[in-house]
Computed example of a mutant assay.
Amino acid sequence: MNRPARLNGILPYQQIKALIEHQAIRSEVPFEDRQIQPASLDLRLGRKAYRLISSFLPELSEITSRLNVLDFYQSDLVMYEMDLTGGAILEKGHVYLVPLLESLKLPKDLRAKANPKSTTGRLDVFTRVVTDLTAGFDEIRPGYHGPLYLEVVPRSFAIKVRTGDSLNQIRFVRGQPAVSDAALRKLHNAEPLLYHNRPAAKPVSSRDLRTDRGLFLRIDLKGADRGDDTIIGYRAKKNSHVIDLSKIGYYAALDFWEPIRRHRQDSLLLEPEEFYILASKERIRVPPGYAAEMMAYEAACGELRTHYAGFFDPGFGYGRGELRGTQVVLEVRPHDVPFLIHDGQTFFKVVYDRMLEFPTQVYGSVLGSSYQRQGLTLSKHFKS
């Protein structure tokens, strides 16, 4: 499956391993095999967390100069320091900054971008990578040399984390890898990128494929068509216990989530600053030569956030060609005013990027991928 490497693209599994071997990606402790994904690297929490007064961007000074103060009472940013080595609870609604175990020494032609992991987003944990002397989050400039920090804000649930836990991931990018709309349509004709969820296994026709610097997808508020009993989403409860991120398949969903059942009008009124888990109308596929990223349909409207986690690895919904797409799970939070949505409404889009070369491992192979065959699925911490 190997193909000649491109000049522009996302670095695959084997090239991420090469970056580690050549010390372009460094760590205070040895890397773990589980960290390296088909088109990304999982980053790990370090030994300390700092409870901050507010979020910030270190455009004018290095981050260490803001953290290394003798008396936190004199700091304009840090309230206190926490030890993560034995586990610590991050309270909801508070801002934390965690130095990560990994650091970078990128070549001048390589940049990076970060995103929360799917599990992180589904727990309504807001994360952003911060680097020294930068005016933005999650975008890491070409040739960056320095440490990485993660801003963490639990929104719905308090969480227990430890040194070594992974809440986010990073992609390495050379040049401009975005696939044009014309190329997307050509690819869809050869290897369907979108399938209807119902009826299953039916590709979206070329004439119904909607593109504008990416593929548009819609929201599903009908579910499995079993009448008013059908669960079409979940809303986070306001008062719940701590979620320990080390406990997989442990928690009862109803202790933390309120099921949302199908409405007769196939619509849903989203309340401001509530957190919802919903699903897409279509199933998507990401062939091995591509990676994808979810984008808000219309960020300018400012009414709602449609997702936290956005990366799709090569092989998502595709495997080695045998799968006919996977539903997209959406992490939705409206802002400011109530927002009414309808079944089949355009809700977000997926942008496809070219890989520099085919990854030697694809999503859903031997990497312990959790969501390859998902429908409407909560995070892996909840019992099935």
Rank of each mutant, 00 (worst) to 15 (best):
N2H: 12
R3T: 14
A5F: 07
R6N: 12
N8T: 13
G9S: 08
P12N: 03
K17I: 14
A18N: 13
L19Y: 13
Q23A: 13
I25P: 00
V29M: 10
F31A: 06
F31N: 07
I36C: 03
Q37G: 06
A39K: 00
L52F: 02
I63W: 02
S65Y: 11
R66W: 07
Q74L: 11
M82K: 15
G86I: 03
L90M: 13
K92D: 09
H94S: 13
V95M: 07
V95F: 05
V95H: 02
L97P: 03
V98R: 01
L100D: 07
A112W: 00
P116E: 02
S118F: 00
V129Y: 00
L133H: 06
D138N: 13
R141S: 01
P142I: 06
Y144T: 07
Y144F: 12
P147T: 00
L150E: 14
F157P: 08
F157E: 05
R162P: 02
R162A: 06
T163M: 06
D165Y: 04
S166A: 07
I170S: 01
V173I: 15
R174E: 09
R174L: 01
Q176T: 11
L184D: 07
L187W: 12
L194W: 00
H196Q: 12
P199H: 07
P199S: 05
R210M: 12
R213S: 14
G214R: 02
L215F: 05
F216N: 01
K222C: 12
R226S: 12
R226P: 00
G227W: 03
I232A: 01
G233Q: 09
Y234W: 15
A236N: 10
N239E: 14
S240F: 07
H241S: 15
V242Y: 01
S246P: 03
I248W: 05
A252C: 11
W257D: 03
P259S: 08
P259M: 10
H263M: 09
L268P: 06
L269I: 14
E271A: 15
I277C: 10
A279E: 15
S280V: 02
P287M: 06
A292D: 10
A296H: 14
E298D: 15
C301R: 09
G302C: 04
T306C: 12
Y308F: 14
F316G: 06
Y318F: 15
G321M: 04
T326R: 07
V329M: 10
P338C: 08
H342V: 08
G344R: 08
T346H: 09
R354F: 12
E357F: 08
E357H: 11
Q361M: 11
Y363D: 05
G364P: 04
Y371R: 00
G375T: 08
S379I: 00
K383R: 15
